Simulated scan of single mutants.
Amino acid sequence: MKACLCKAFGPPSSLVIEDIADPVPGPGDVLVRVRACALNFFDTLIIQNKYQTKPALPFSPSAEFAGVVEAIGEGVEDVAPGDRVMGYLGYGGARELVITCEDRLVKLPDEVSFEAAAGLTVTYGTTLHAFRDRAKLQQGETVAVLGASGGVGQAAVEIATIMGCRVIACASSDEKLAFARSLGAAETVNYSTQPLKETLKGLTNGEGVDVVYDPVGGELAEQALRATAWEGRFLVIGFAAGEIPKIPLNLVLLKGCDIRGVFWGEAVVRDPEGHQENMRQLLEWVGQGRLNPHIHAIYPLEDISTALEEIAARKVLGKVIVTP
């Protein structure tokens, strides 16, 4: 089979495409032929050894995929050869065949394409877990989404809107904010030209936002925290800005607010049933036409380096899909 391999840590240009042996499923394993896999910002970090997950070399990038079950090992009961599935690996999806366990797979309805499903698991799974499980988001609340045009930011705008909330999209350009409005954002903040805290306060009549969704970190985090309402919830999603902020804890005390970590990858391991439930909810919304994941571009496996360079350069609006 063909696989994209990271054989030495470095930029996307250092990745290679090679033929390697087909994997063979053992007891409890499921072999899936990958029809589409998705790339995320953390893929640009993991290939440089700058991410919290540090796989042994060589490995393939891409944490999420969709495809068809090719074979199963002894003891597998929930899926069978021929089933359409979507799944999560952590890394290793950018190849023609992958091995995983059935707990990491969700059956895919016929009406959902492989390309749409491939990009659902990480960004939309993270976001639904953040809003439903961590923030206990309620209809009618106001949500500020930082980095609103990126992968998880897009998902946050869409899901918060579906859940009946008022979304304030925050991003670094008017183009990105126009995209966020097309996804359902009610208000926007361009934090390259507007002060984030003061603008969020102004849009909420001085009360502040109920929930902050922050995949960016850096200097924006403290500004957004200062704009939370009494008993607000600040969701720590990631640090795309590259800097992990140091938050003055007196702000948490004075606002009676919570800072809540969203470690979705670990939540999948610790609560597989909750993960399955969230995935089924996402697929239901897609099937109903309420959720329409925006695909920025679809690349062949041979062009995966170009795709990752686009993500690293912040040129992507939505999901980037690769078809092995």
Rank of each mutant, 00 (worst) to 15 (best):
F42C: 00
T44S: 10
P25W: 11
Q52C: 01
P27S: 05
I47N: 06
A38E: 08
L45Y: 13
V30A: 06
I47A: 09
Y51H: 12
P23K: 07
R33F: 01
A38Y: 03
N40P: 03
V32K: 08
P27M: 06
Q52L: 13
R33Q: 15
Q52V: 14
L31S: 06
R35D: 08
A56D: 15
N49V: 03
V24L: 06
P55I: 11
D29S: 11
L57S: 04
I46W: 04
P58M: 08
A36K: 13
N49W: 03
K50A: 08
R35I: 01
T53E: 14
I47M: 15
V32E: 12
T53M: 15
Y51P: 04
K50T: 00
Y51D: 07
I46F: 06
I46M: 14
Q52H: 13
V24I: 15
N40I: 09
R33W: 01
G28A: 02
R33P: 00
C37V: 13
N40M: 08
P55R: 12
V34F: 10
V30K: 11
G28L: 03
N40R: 05
F42D: 04
L31Y: 04
G28S: 04
A56M: 07
Q52P: 05
T53P: 00
G26H: 01
C37A: 14
I47Q: 10
P23R: 03
T44V: 11
P25H: 11
Y51V: 06
F42W: 05
K54E: 08
Q48A: 13
V34W: 04
Y51R: 01
D29Y: 05
N40T: 14
P25Q: 03
I46Y: 05
K54D: 07
R33G: 12
P25G: 05
K54R: 15
Y51N: 04
P27D: 12
N49F: 01
A36Q: 13
L57I: 07
R35L: 13
K50H: 11
P58Q: 13
L31A: 09
K50S: 02
L31N: 02
L57F: 05
G26P: 02
P25T: 09
A56G: 04
Q48H: 03
K54F: 00
I46G: 02
R35K: 15
D43K: 06
F42Y: 12
D43A: 05
D29H: 13
N40E: 13
P55N: 10
V24C: 02
L45V: 04
V24Y: 01
R33L: 01
L57K: 12
N40W: 01
D43Q: 06
A38P: 07
P25K: 09
P58V: 11
K50V: 00
T53N: 09
P27E: 13
P58I: 11
A56P: 00
G26W: 08
G28Q: 04
R33K: 15
G28D: 07
V24G: 00
R33C: 06
Q48N: 06
A36C: 10
Q48R: 15
P25M: 11
P58G: 08
A38K: 09
N49D: 15
I46T: 08
Q48E: 15
R33I: 02
V32Y: 03
